[in-house]
Structures are given as C-alpha cells and as structure tokens.
C-alpha cells in the first residue's frame, strides 16, 4: 500500500522527465504498430521545439507512408509531387532564406522516383536538410521491391528474393550523396532502440545547427523497419533489421564537416 501511494506521489508535474512534445499534434499516427516513422517524427518535432523553430520551419512532406505528415507536426508544410520534395525545398529556401527548410522522404520517394532531384539538390549544395527513411521496401503500396531492397530480400514483387542479375543492385543513396561536394553533413542512423533514437536526435540537432551556417545540404538517412511489409512483428522486424540491414547499410557518419574533424583531432591530441 505504501508503495502504491509512493507511485502516485511520483506522478507530479515537477517530476516530469519526458512527454510527447506539443509540436506533435494530438492526431493518431496513421502508421502500423512499431513503424519507425512515428519515432522519427517525434524526435524531429522535439528538435524543432527545443530549438524554438516552430514558426521558422517549413517542411516538405513526400508521397509515401508519411504523406500525411502535415497532420502530425504542427509547423508550416508543403506537399510535394512524388519525389520532387528537394526541388520544392530548393525554391522555398531560395525565396525565404531565413527559414529552416527540410524534406522528409521515404526510399520510394527519394531513391526511386526522386533520384535526380535528390542528387542534383545535394550537388548544388542547397541549404536544406533531407531526412531519408530507408526501410528497403515500398511500404505504402504493399511491400513491393524498392531500389534499396537488399539482395535476396523477399518482397511482394520479388517473392523468391531479389535476384541481382535480373533486378539490379541495391542503391546506397547516402553513400552517393556523401561523395558530392555540395553536401556538408551526411550520416546514417536508426531509431529502433533508445540508444539509436538518442543518437539520431543528436544528428538532427547537429544538422539544424549546420543549416544556420549556410554551408550546404545536410542528409540524414534513418534505416527503419516495415513490420507490415516484411511480414514480421515489430520486435522481430527490428532484430531482422539489425542482422540484415545494418551490415549492408552500416550506421555512422559518412561525411562530417572538415572543421569538426580538425577539432576532433586536436582534442584527441590533447588527450594523448
């Protein structure tokens, strides 16, 4: 009994550690249970809230599962045609250079139909943030094979596994844009465990700060799951992702700003 009252006493506003940010609306997310989109939305909204950018941010929502993103985060939004979000973001950033502009795209949007827009936007070095959710499948339309589908991975249009000879090789968009001179910060993260969520949040915060420097495009890939498309439970899907997706799409920074690299080296020299 004493314990029960103790627990009730803990639940007080002054003891609050974590609650859903107010930048997220109260609409119920349209995603399947366990989908990484929800977590990615929430940490993005938290960063916008913590940096005080709610009225300064313009987001571009894509076509795909996250097409209704404007219903969930309470900022200014523009809906782009399929794959054309970076082109639209370019226009918005050039017309309103003081705003923080980001696009949020899935792999069908960014790596398939929007490949040209993505590559050219990154090559021009537009000052926008691109968030790329990669789950290796076209989730919204029923789990068809995407350019990011792993070799041998089953999907509804490759029921015997992706045959590289017949269907081509998977495309590592993040590695491609990391080689372009226009990008300033390129990283690959995930949101399936608390540690990874915290790391991804840190990466998004860094990217938001880099946007203020106007030095180039920031590109964050979030390797995510698709429990419905992969026909697994969310927990199984996360384990499968760790075992199969991460060896092919290794997590970590692919391109960090030169200044930060120099800083890191001097710091480590000091430590030595």
């Amino acid at each position: 009994m004493a314990q029960a009252t103790g627990i009730k006493e803990i639940i007080k506003p002054e003891n609050l550690v974590y609650r859903k940010t107010k930048v997220m609306t109260d609409n119920i997310l349209s995603y399947c249970p366990g989908c990484g989109h929800g977590t990615a939305h929430r940490i993005l909204a938290e960063i916008i809230d913590e940096e005080g950018l709610q009225s300064e941010t313009i987001g571009i929502s894509p076509v795909g599962c996250s097409v209704l993103l404007y219903e969930f985060i309470d900022i200014d939004w523009q809906e782009a045609a399929h794959g054309r979000a970076p082109a639209l973001a370019t226009a918005i950033k050039r017309l309103l250079p003081d705003k923080f502009v980001f696009t949020y795209q899935g792999d069908g949007d960014l790596a398939a139909i929007g490949t040209a827009e993505t590559i050219h936007t990154c090559n021009r070095g537009e000052n926008i943030l691109i968030i790329f959710i990669n789950n290796g499948i076209y989730g919204m339309t029923g789990g068809q094979m995407a350019p990011t589908t792993l070799p041998g991975m089953k999907s509804s249009t490759s029921p015997y596994g992706r045959d590289v000879k017949l269907m081509g090789n998977p495309l590592k968009m993040t590695d491609i844009v990391a080689t372009l001179p226009g990008t300033y910060y390129v990283t690959r993260q995930s949101v399936h465990t608390p540690v990874n969520v915290r790391k991804t949040k840190k990466a998004i915060r860094k990217a938001v700060h880099y946007q203020k420097l106007n030095k180039g495009t920031c590109f964050i890939e979030i390797v995510s799951n698709c429990p419905s498309g992969w026909k697994m439970t969310p927990v199984e899907a996360n384990k499968w992702m760790e075992a199969n997706m991460f060896p092919f799409y290794p997590l970590g920074d692919l391109k960090v700003p030169a200044e930060e690299n120099a800083q890191k080296t001097t710091n480590s020299e000091k430590n030595d």
Binding site: N15, L16, V17, Y31, P33, H37, G38, T39, R42
Partner: peptide
C-alpha cells in the same frame, strides 16, 4: 524514447 506513437509520459 522508442515509442513510435509517443504515448508514454515519464516521471522521476
């Protein structure tokens, strides 16, 4: 942190 739907509030 990991809840995709943000349904959990934490006190400490």
């Amino acid at each position: 942190m990991v809840c995709p739907d943000g349904v959990i509030t934490v006190y400490k």
